[in-house]
Computed example of a mutant assay.
Amino acid sequence: MCGRYSLFAPPETIEARFDATFDFTFEPRYNAAPSQSLPVVTDADADTIQRMKWGLVPSWADDRSDHGYINARAETLAEKRSFAAAYESRRSSTEQSEAGPDTPTAGRCLVPADGFYEWVSGDGGKQPYRVALPDDALFAMAGLYERWEPPQRQTGLGEFGASDDDGGQDEVIETFTIVTTEPNASVRGLHHRMAVILDPDEEETWLTGDTEAVSDLLDPYDGEMRTYPVSTAVNSPANDDPSIIEEIEV
């Protein structure tokens, strides 16, 4: 699985790598965690790096708190109701530019990162490891996103909007999940799943290709990776600073 990751490259470096522009003020993340709003590039607006909450809530869910899928298995994307609509989305670059960023309710996205974390059980408890490309190079994880809108409330007097005491349950939210696959040789000793990491020349296909084309992209990453142990400080999402990524001795 992928339950934590990092993205701390300078914003201009991220923009250049993905040929897209932030629509918010980006701050480095050394310990990105579920439920946080994090950068993604969607098939609806590939020129923009926007924020969505990590933990996909299907558009058909009655209650946004009932779901929050941080990962989606590559092998069953087309079969699972929670992911099929987003996975089967296909939008050409022309469709993207004409529709604009606010049109789709589900689709595919890129999740920029420069590393992710896995935990290995041992006699002393679970030891976290960071997994990254050489020189902490940026990469894209395959993702899916959905927009969830609250069900309309009907009364004898008509429809009413959100109330102020429902804990935010009437807010429209946009959420994403990270697609996982079998581990490669670098990750196999740490976990039985890993995020789908796309080669740069596969990223446009993931955003715009049909399901037959993108199904070939969902294999383990075959490039060079490095893994190393890090402090258990990463266990808490409250810890988010450069010390998180420093290698330790175990």
Results as ranks from 00 to 15, higher is better:
Ala195Phe: 01
Thr48Glu: 05
Phe139Thr: 04
Ile173Arg: 14
Gln96Lys: 02
Gly100Glu: 05
Ser93Tyr: 07
Phe8Arg: 15
Arg153Phe: 07
Glu27Pro: 05
Asp136Ile: 07
Thr211Asp: 11
Thr181Trp: 07
Glu88His: 11
Thr180Ser: 12
Trp206Pro: 08
Leu218Asn: 04
Thr105Glu: 10
Tyr228Gly: 05
Pro34Glu: 07
Arg29Ile: 05
Phe22Asn: 01
Pro112Tyr: 01
Gly161Thr: 08
Asp165Arg: 14
Ala99Arg: 13
Ala61Gly: 08
Thr175Val: 02
Ala46Met: 06
Ile197His: 02
Gln152Glu: 15
Glu212Gly: 14
Ser236Asn: 12
Pro34Asn: 11
Ser97Ile: 13
Val40Trp: 05
Val250Phe: 12
Gly143Asp: 06
Asp201Phe: 00
Val214Gly: 06
Asp135Cys: 03
Leu190Tyr: 06
Leu218Lys: 08
Tyr145Glu: 09
Tyr69Ala: 14
Tyr117Thr: 05
Val120His: 09
Glu88Pro: 07
Ala44Leu: 01
Pro28Glu: 11
Gly3Arg: 01
Thr42Asp: 00
Val172Asp: 07
Pro150Asp: 03
Asn239Pro: 06
Ser6Asp: 02
Phe22Leu: 04
Gly55Cys: 10
Leu198Thr: 09
Ile14Asp: 02
Pro34Trp: 03
Ala32Lys: 00
Asp114Cys: 13
Thr94Asp: 15
Ser93Asn: 05
Ile49Pro: 00
Tyr5Val: 03
Ser65Gly: 11
Ile178Arg: 00
Met141Phe: 02
Gly3Pro: 03
Leu56Lys: 05
Ile245Leu: 09
Tyr87Gln: 08
Ile244Met: 14
Gly167Pro: 08
Leu218Phe: 11
Leu133Val: 03
Val250Arg: 15
Pro39Arg: 07
Asp164Asn: 15
Ala46Cys: 00
Ala72Pro: 06
Phe139Ala: 07
Thr180Tyr: 03
Ala213Cys: 04
Glu27Ala: 14
Asp166Phe: 05
Ala140Val: 08
Pro128Tyr: 07
Thr227Gly: 04
Arg51Leu: 11
Ala72Gly: 01
Arg226Asp: 13
Gln154Val: 15
Val131Asn: 00
Tyr30Gly: 02
Val230His: 03
Asp45His: 10
Ala233His: 13
Ala16Phe: 08
Gln96His: 07
Pro28Ile: 11
Gly122Cys: 01
Thr21Glu: 14
Ala32Ile: 09
Asp165Tyr: 11
Val41Phe: 00
Cys2Glu: 01
Trp148Gln: 02
Thr155Met: 06
Ser82Phe: 00
Asp165Met: 10
Met1Thr: 14
Ala233Tyr: 10
Glu202Val: 09
Gly161Leu: 09
Arg73Trp: 03
Ser89Ile: 01
Val41Ser: 05
Pro39Cys: 08
Gly122Val: 08
Gly3Ser: 12
Thr180Asp: 06
Asp136Val: 01
Gly209Phe: 06
Phe160Gln: 13
Ile70Thr: 13
Gly158Ala: 09
Asn31His: 08
His67Val: 03
Phe18Cys: 04
Pro10Tyr: 05
